[in-house]
Structures are given as structure tokens and as C-alpha cells.
Design a binder for these strands. Sequence first.
DNA 1: GATGAATGAGGATTCATTCAT
DNA 2: GATGAATGAATCCTCATTCAT
Lengths: 189, 189, 189, 189
Amino acid sequence: MSDKKERILQATEKLLAQYGFHGLSMQMVAKEAKVAAGTIYRYFEDKDDLLYQLHDHILGYVANKLTANVCDDMPLKQQFRTMWLNIWDMACHSDAPLINRGQFENLPRRNSPEQRQLEKRMFAKVDTMFDQGKADGQFKDLDNEILSVLGLEPSACLARKHVRGVVTVSDEALEATIDACWDAITKHK
Amino acid sequence: MSDKKERILQATEKLLAQYGFHGLSMQMVAKEAKVAAGTIYRYFEDKDDLLYQLHDHILGYVANKLTANVCDDMPLKQQFRTMWLNIWDMACHSDAPLINRGQFENLPRRNSPEQRQLEKRMFAKVDTMFDQGKADGQFKDLDNEILSVLGLEPSACLARKHVRGVVTVSDEALEATIDACWDAITKHK
Amino acid sequence: MSDKKERILQATEKLLAQYGFHGLSMQMVAKEAKVAAGTIYRYFEDKDDLLYQLHDHILGYVANKLTANVCDDMPLKQQFRTMWLNIWDMACHSDAPLINRGQFENLPRRNSPEQRQLEKRMFAKVDTMFDQGKADGQFKDLDNEILSVLGLEPSACLARKHVRGVVTVSDEALEATIDACWDAITKHK
Amino acid sequence: MSDKKERILQATEKLLAQYGFHGLSMQMVAKEAKVAAGTIYRYFEDKDDLLYQLHDHILGYVANKLTANVCDDMPLKQQFRTMWLNIWDMACHSDAPLINRGQFENLPRRNSPEQRQLEKRMFAKVDTMFDQGKADGQFKDLDNEILSVLGLEPSACLARKHVRGVVTVSDEALEATIDACWDAITKHK
DNA sequence: GATGAATGAGGATTCATTCAT
DNA sequence: GATGAATGAATCCTCATTCAT
């Protein structure tokens, strides 16, 4: 990807995290990216397009990070735990400042089927894990979207609160929370 | 509360749900509320204050709805189920269009201690429930914020996806999901 | 008409005459009219609307001036001469600087039927004169639009050249030109 | 003339006719002419110069067309009729889309004496005709510019209205109009 | 208290022009 | 000569806020 385009996307992400959705001006982005205002329009249709593309850009990053160090042949619990912590780390360390969902979720997005399809493909490994767990009879027989809400979403939610200082989560509590999420998605006699 | 102030808040909520955060102008609010633009400034410091107060306004509504039909002497599981469904209903039926969290969560808010305190008081019944469950030995020994993330947050998350059409949740699946959330917060030998 | 609206229209006319069509900015208009930039948009949809309305505004002025001091019971030749000179005066003295057709003609205009109708009504007296002349058998039997092009348009054309300094027209030559236009529209054995 | 320069001029003329004066951008011209934006600046100082040169370019074309098929030894009336119809055809058929005066007249132009001189030379044949007619005692004794306004300008004016659909001019009416213009410039006892 | 006309700073976007390749 | 990416000033327009009535 062009150097400039990359810089513009990163500037946008940073400023979005810092100043929120409104209060993001094209001039600010230009300045932060060390690019002239007009240059942005070589790479992006308009402000909306910039935000759309940022959404996709981040989604790619997230899909990548999310499934880092996860192999199909790891025990399910370990796969799950790894993903859970991947999410937690992303949202906490915020090397990519917007992943901090909540802001990301609210980026304007194309709601096209292609977009939906893309998201599916990106999170294929998550699906595989859930499917495997259900085939095993270890996981509850629920739609993967629901399992995701039960098992992984809390990681992002809690991380956001943790970062905002609403709760402080000790290492011990963190482990207990992961187990609780596991409890949510697994069957109990 | 003054009739005008109430009308302004409701107009703001409606327009916010419809047009999103940016794309909400004071003139629009004035028109929708059938009030002169200047009048808004009798009741609200400025645009930020309007949004802050709207946040509080809605929070009050949510706190109310959330604990509707919940009594301390109901069995814990029933208390929990009722709250869970209260959240689900709010987010799905959207009689108050913004509760649909995601938009609400991202309202700018004062992060003052008073604000935090207010939220605490509002959700006192939730805390009571969790405290009771932990005292019983029935719930996991985790911070109430964490229990909330595990047990109740999924209701809002899922409802949002349901409304957006990302998943369709049958009545049966809904019950199973509630049980799964219960699994998340309760102890298992 | 509101004082401000009037001032904006006059400023626009002046600047348009001076700087031409491009090179007319809303800020310039605002400054010239001693009005804030935003104020223009209370009275005019956008820049196009401003120009449209200016067109109508001027058209009204022209229709008025054109037939000043013309009565139905004057001899036809005198009616004609008066109108001819009214046009000449307008274009030369430019109390209203844009009448100087050529610039006026090229204002963007709504080409709606209402617009056409309006123009018709405005120039009704001209039509009456031509109709009368044709009924008398004094004028050639041509469409009024054609008679207008032959008899009156040259007044504006010549005036423009006169103002631009392309020709200098003496009083004597002026009278001869009027007669020549009369020759163009009247029958000759 | 360089192939590229020619293409640029033609692109400019086409786009000018289509999009009007503002709404003509150098990028558009470049694209239409299949030339890089920077290339325009090899042949033209700046945008103004491009328009100036276009003016001259068209003027040459007009001067050429105007006097096509006109010989000094044709009877005066026939010379006049031929020129009149040349103008009519140009403005109607618009093989060169801008000749449609009204747009052409308003091109920015250098008002230098050289420019004026050039125009003179271009329209020399018209002058010759008028001079001849005055020498004969057949034409009125008026400045050639005035005779031009009386005799030829109406052709362009009417053609513009014809094209715009304001009037429909039958072949018969056309001939009558030519005669009327002849009446305007010739002496009557 | 209420109004809404007026303000003008600030936003997104365009576009003439330059210049390294 | 030719290119077209990059520039950034200038454009049109919006909108939070004020204030005379």
C-alpha cells in the first residue's frame, strides 16, 4: 500500500481514538499524517470513505491479532484462552488505538453483503473453533455469533472498563473471568 | 422538569438515534422540539451539556427499566432472568431509541466521580443481587463489574446484533443464552 | 424585501459586473453587502439560487425601465424610440451595472415554464407595441421575438460596444441607428 | 500547431460549451485531451492564457467561416446574404460548439490593441463589403461597427434563441429576416 | 422567559499549479 | 518533452452561539 495512504490511515486511527468521531477534521488528519489536505482525496473518495476504509483496515488487523498463536491442533480450551487474551491485550495495550472496541464498533461502515462476507472470512478460525467444540459435544449448541458474544465479547467489554479505570482486574481475577467465559459456552451436566 | 426541557431532550434522543452523533445540529433539535434555537441555551450550557444531560436522562430511564419487576425476595435466578430480559427488551423494542447501546455508550459523558456515584446508585439493585449471590456462595467471587460484564452485558450485545440482523435469535436460543450467562456467573464444582 | 436581502443582491450585481462570473465568491459578496457570510444563506439556498434570484431581480428592473414613459396612445414610432433609448440608457449609464447584457444573458437561469411566463408578462408592453404595428400594416409580419431582435437588440449590442470603447457613437449616429432599426421592422413598398 | 496543443484547445472548447465557464477544471481538460495535467503548462502560461488562446483560436475559425463563399465581385446583396447565413449556420449547427456566441463573447480576452487589430484584420472582408456599399451610396453612412450590429448581429442573436427553443424560425421567416436586416443597413428614399 | 436573525469561525472539498521522475 | 502525484490556498457552506427585540 502506498506510503502516504498508510500514513493517512494511521493518523486517522490515532486521532479518532484521541478526539472521538466528531472533532476529527480532515485538516487534522492531514497535519498528523504530514500530508497536504488535498492529498487525502487522492486515496479516499471523501471523509466517509476514509472511515470506511479505516474500518476494513482495522478489521484486518484485528482478525490477524485475534488468532495469533492459535493452531487447530491445540486443545480447545487453550485455543479459546489464547484468543481471549489476544483480545484483552489488543484492547489494553492499544498498539492500535481504536481496537478499543466501542469506538471501533461505531465507525460508520458499509453494510454491504461483501463486507459481511469479508468479516466472516476474517474470523474463520473463530468459527472453526466453535464448530469443533460443538461437534465434540463440549460446547453448547448455539449459533457461533451467540457463542462469540458469550465467550469472547466480555474480554473486550471488560478490557474497555479496565482501561477506563472503572474496574481494576488482577491477574487472578482475569484467569477467573476467562474460566467464567468458558463456563458460559461449555455444557454442564 | 420544564415542559420545554423535556421536549428538547426527547428531540435530541430521537435525532441522535436517527442521524448519529455528527449530523445532529442545534437547529435541528430546536425545530424537532418546536422551540427556538436560543431557548435550548436557557436549559443547557452548550451542546456538550445537552449531550451530558441526555446521558443522565437516559441512564435514569435505563436504571428504571432494568430493575422493573425485580424484588429482593424473588429467587436469585428469577431476579437475574428478569433483568436480563429487561435489557433485551429495551435494546430490541427501543421505545427509547438510544438505549440501543453502542450509540448510548458513546455519548460524551462527564467522567466525574459524582457521575460514577450516580451510576452506582442507579444500579444499586443489580449490585444487591450480585452481593446476595456471592454471600450465598452461589455466584463466583468476582467484582460486581465483572459479573455484570459476564452475565448482563451479553444481553445488550446480542440484542444489538439481533436488531442489526446479524443473527436471528429464536425464543429457544434466547432461553439457552440466558442460562449460559447464568453458567458464567455461578459456581460449578 | 428585507434590507439585508436587497443589499446582498446589489452587492452581487456590482461584483458580478466587476469581476465576472467566476471570481465571484460568497465571502466577497458578504463583505460588499456588509453582512456575515452565513447570512446570505438565510435568504438564498446556495450560490446558484443567489444568481437565479438576481436574474429575476434584474429582469424585473429591466422590464420596468424598458417601458418607462411609454403609453399605448403615443404614436408607434415614438413608443419604439422611447424604448430603444431606455435600453440604450440602461446599458450605458449602468445605474444597474449588470443590465449591460452579455453578462446578464449569461447568468445561470432556471429554464422553467414559470420563468418563461414571467418574462412574457414583463415584456407585455413590447408585445403590445409590435402587435399594434402589425395590425396597422406598418410592421413586417414576423414573430415578435424576431422583431425584437431586429429592432431593439441592436440597442443593447451597440451600447455594450460603446461602453467598451469599441465604437464611439455620436448623438447624430445614434438617431440614425434608431431610424435604421425602425427600417428593419417596418414594411417598405 | 503541435498535436497536443490542438487537442487541448479542442477539449477546452468542448468542455466549456458543456460545463460553462466555472466548472471547467484543468484536470478535466487534461483528461478529455488525453494529456497529463502538467502538459497543458508546456503550451499555455496558465488557465487564463488557455482561455485567451482559445478565444483567438475560435476567432480565427469564425473569421474563416464567416466569409466562406464570399467574393468581392458578387453583388453586394448576395455577399451580405451569404455572410448572414454563414453566421446562422455556425451558431445553429455548432460544429464548433462555442461559436454559439453568448458563451464565446464572454470568454475572457486580452483587451490589447494588438488583439483589436487582429480582429480587424480577421473581419476585413466584412469591412470591405460595408465600405463598398457606402461608396455605392447603397448603404447608410454609418460606422462599420454599427452596420455590423444592425445587419449581422441579429443573425447570431436570433440563432441563439432558435437553438434555445425560444422561437422557431421557418425558412420563410428566415429569408424575411435577412431582408429586414438588409433594410436596416440600406438607404430608403 | 422566549425568539430567531445574525454571526463568523471552522469544516469538507476542489483545483490551479509545481516538480521530481 | 511528458507525466501525474502532491500541494495548500481558496471555495462553498454549516452550525454553535449570541443578543436585540
